[in-house]
C-alpha cells in the first residue's frame, strides 16, 4: 500500500509539473509531449520508455487496489456484527473516504485516459496536439467536464492528505516529534497538488489559456 502509493505520488508530481508547461505556450507544451514519447531514444525505440512507464504505473495501481481490497475485506470480516450506535470516525474526512475516494479516482483515470491520451471522448482528439485538445476539452460550454475534473482532483487531494502520513507511518518513518510537522507537510503538499492540477482546466475555462 505504502510502496505502491509512494511510486504513484512520484508520478503525480512529475505529471503536474508537465501540465504546468501549458502556461509557456503551445509550442513548449506540445514539444514536451513529443519529448515524452521520445525519452530513451536512440537507445530505446520511440515510445518504448512510455510503455515501460505505463506498465509500471498499471502494476502500481493494481498492487495498490489489491492491498486496499485485502484490507477492506479483513476489516469487514473483523467486525461481523456492526454497532447500532456509531458516530462518524474521528480520524478526519480524508481517512474516512480513502476507499470510496479511491474508486472515484479509478473512474476518473479511465475517463482521463479516454479524454486526453486516447482522445475518444475529447471534442478535438487530435493525436500529437495535446495543447489544442486540452483547450478544446475545457471550453466554458463544457463546464461539467471541468467540474468533474475538479471533483476528482479534490478527491485526490484528500487521498494524498491521509495517504502520505499513513504511508510514512507504515514505513516506520513517523514519530511523535515529527508527527505534527509531517501532517502539516502532507496537508500543504496535498493542497499544492490540487491547486497545480486545477490551474490548467480553470485557466482554459476562464479563457486564460486559449
Amino acid at each position: 500500500m505504502a510502496v505502491s502509493g509512494g511510486l504513484l505520488v512520484l508520478f503525480i508530481v512529475v505529471h503536474m509539473v508537465g501540465n504546468l508547461k501549458i502556461f509557456f505556450g503551445r509550442e513548449e507544451f506540445d514539444g514536451y509531449a513529443a519529448w515524452l514519447r521520445a525519452i530513451g531514444t536512440p537507445a530505446l525505440h520511440e515510445t518504448w520508455f512510455l510503455w515501460i512507464q505505463r506498465a509500471g504505473l498499471t502494476l502500481c495501481v493494481l498492487l495498490h487496489i489489491g492491498t486496499a481490497a485485502d484490507l477492506a475485506v479483513r476489516a469487514k470480516r473483523a467486525r461481523p456484527v456492526r454497532y447500532r450506535h456509531r458516530p462518524k470516525v474521528q480520524g478526519g474526512y480524508a481517512a474516512r473516504t480513502m476507499r470510496w475516494g479511491g474508486v472515484i479516482l479509478v473512474l476518473f483515470i479511465v475517463w482521463h485516459i479516454l479524454d486526453l491520451t486516447v482522445g475518444t471522448v475529447n471534442p478535438r482528439g487530435v493525436h500529437g496536439e495535446p495543447y489544442g485538445n486540452v483547450v478544446a476539452g475545457f471550453q466554458p460550454e463544457r463546464w461539467y467536464i471541468t467540474l468533474f475534473y475538479a471533483l476528482a482532483v479534490i478527491a485526490l487531494g484528500f487521498h494524498l492528505r491521509h495517504g502520505l502520513t499513513s504511508a510514512l507511518q507504515s514505513l516506520g518513518r513517523g514519530n511523535a516529534v515529527r508527527e505534527r510537522g509531517l501532517s502539516a507537510a502532507a496537508a500543504v503538499f496535498a493542497v499544492a497538488i490540487v491547486v497545480g492540477y486545477l490551474s490548467v482546466p480553470f485557466a482554459v475555462t476562464t479563457g486564460l489559456v486559449t
Binding site: D70, A75, A78, Q90, A95
Partner: peptide, 14 residues
C-alpha cells in the same frame, strides 16, 4: 486471530 489491518485512521488512540 482475525483482527483487521491498520490503516492509520487514529481512532484507536482517541
Amino acid at each position: 486471530l482475525g483482527f483487521g489491518g491498520c490503516t492509520n485512521t487514529g481512532e484507536c488512540t482517541v
